[in-house]
Design a protein around this nucleic acid. Structure first.
Lengths: 304, 304
DNA sequence: ACGTCCATGTAGCTAGTCTAAAGAGTTCAT
DNA sequence: ATGAACTCTTTAGACTAGCTACATGGACGT
């Protein structure tokens, strides 16, 4: 019963193909195939099954892969323990983020990391991507979801909430609603909206506003990039839902943010990780830095 | 971070010497020493320390050994899972018992075990032995303790209670107390006792009786073997504390058992295991058989 | 039907882990 | 004190397990 082989099976469960596992583990596909075969012989029952030119796990294989995760977690805990004894968080941590969260949190995090800990960041457009899938490639995945709706719980991933960011209504200066302290769904009935591409969490809030206001919202454009959306709003081409903490960076004073009441309007920013990776000291250190940075951002805004 | 090496460290923590580990793992001491050295180099800090001609773990070493147990447990769970898929409990299980428990439980257990599962039993005299120490050598250790007093909890061992056996007062037929339904501490003040060797749990109950009765008990003999004690009682040389379910096997009808009231008088029979071994399907099967057998014994006596 | 993609066999090499034997330090008894 | 017994360690050499490289055999798409 070898751990390395179990780990290979787990990778196969996550990545879905022998070649992908081989690539990820810096081996040839042949080596992976051989080890899986040995594991299967040891187990005494088929763990994989050919499907087309690919390979899928059997029920038994999936079950074993799941318990392999527990093994990986306890192993990671052991190495974390010994890292703590030497007390230095060693190695590199990789992270993907969607643009706005990265802009808001990462600079502060990287500044506060001690020496010897390297954080490799990348960004991915969230619209076309499946956040959990990135956990195979990166140690930490920054994702967003609507409040409460943890769509990616239950896949065996560790989810660490970082912050809750309100989504405000962005208006150009001089807009009729710009003097109000806040706005409600009914106020927004006649407006033209600058929307975001499908799949974004914003989408659901707009639907909720439509329901509350009892009116259809007209959506003139659909963009993925926040700065682009804001420039349209400032130009008076419509109004938009924008995350409070990350908006207005480009052109301060030219965009007015109004809290939205009557509709749950916030997004939750979370960190997603494979449970074993979450145990690494270096990873935990980064997570803690993210949390404190997130708290700092939230506080600096509520203080205003 | 190799699991085998961690396992070696754990064995060292349990057994206390390189030679013992080597013996237990069917290796030469040299191999063990080398592997521990590698682990130490990987860890970057000393895990062991010479003491006399032996070797002891450092704090870091002990901590790592403890987390190695978690790894072993999750690994054992994984293999158990796959055993369940094949649903047969494979392999051999070793067990030590103290004589009376073995006599009471083991025959019934072995009869009810399915084929392919071999149970290797041994017995050890409990007086001179440290029950937990046997868990290094045997999968299951049958031990007894006073009720509630779990003296060997906290060493990281798994403790499964099997049964609670009352300790009665054994009298020869024709003894003045033989007609009573039960006896109390005061009834026993003037009696001569056949005692057991030091360290036995019986010891404490006798002290409790002394306290309650306010009298010193005279102890004429001290034996370890129950049958021997009983033969002395039957011969009228004294009275004794005997476990209700296991006594009288030799000479039925010649020994009278009276429940003892006013003093907590029972012993708990438990199974002790290393947590990782407790996860093995074969071991779990034996434990279940022990539990059901114990329940059967208890029931057959309360029914009378 | 052909090229492509994926998984799997085969042969040979490398690296890691074992044994065997000798060495160094500690304890105990004579 | 000196040697015998014990324990852990070191060294050198053998063996084995797992890897790469290359070749093979199905499955898909054009």
């Amino acid at each position: 019963m070898d751990v390395q082989r179990l780990e290979l099976l787990r990778e196969l469960a996550d990545r879905g193909s022998v070649t992908a596992v081989a690539l990820a583990t810096h081996r040839t596909p042949s080596a992976v195939s051989q080890q899986l075969k040995v594991l299967e012989r040891e187990a005494g029952l088929p763990l994989t099954q050919r499907q087309g030119r690919g390979l899928v796990l059997t029920d038994a294989g999936r079950a074993l892969a799941r318990s392999a995760t527990d093994v990986a977690v306890s192993l990671a805990k052991a190495t974390a323990l010994w890292d703590e004894f030497r007390n230095h968080a060693s190695g590199e941590v990789s992270l993907v983020t969607f643009p706005t969260a990265g802009q808001m949190l990462l600079p502060g995090v990287i500044k506060n990391l001690g020496p010897g800990l390297v954080l490799n960041c990348a960004d991915e457009d969230p619209e076309l991507s499946d956040f959990p899938a990135f956990t195979a490639e990166y140690d930490i995945v920054l994702a967003h979801s609507m409040s409460g709706q943890l769509s990616w719980a239950g896949r065996g991933l560790k989810v660490v909430p970082l912050m809750t960011e309100p989504l405000d209504v962005g208006l150009p200066v001089g807009h009729p609603l710009a003097d109000r302290a806040w706005v409600g769904p009914r106020d927004l009935a006649g407006e033209t909206w600058i929307g975001v591409t499908d799949g974004y969490p914003f989408e659901r809030i707009l639907h909720a506003i439509e329901q509350e206001a009892g009116a259809h919202l007209s959506m003139s454009q659909r963009f993925a990039d926040l700065a682009l959306i804001e420039s349209f709003v400032i130009a008076g081409l419509g109004i938009a839902l924008v995350p409070r903490y990350t908006s207005g960076g480009g052109q301060p004073g030219r965009l007015v943010l109004k809290p939205l009441r009557g509709v749950e309007s916030q997004r939750q920013i979370v960190a997603l990780m494979r449970p074993d990776r979450a145990e690494r000291v270096a990873v935990r250190t980064v997570i803690e830095a993210l949390q404190s940075e997130a708290a700092k951002v939230e506080q600096s805004h509520t203080a205003k």
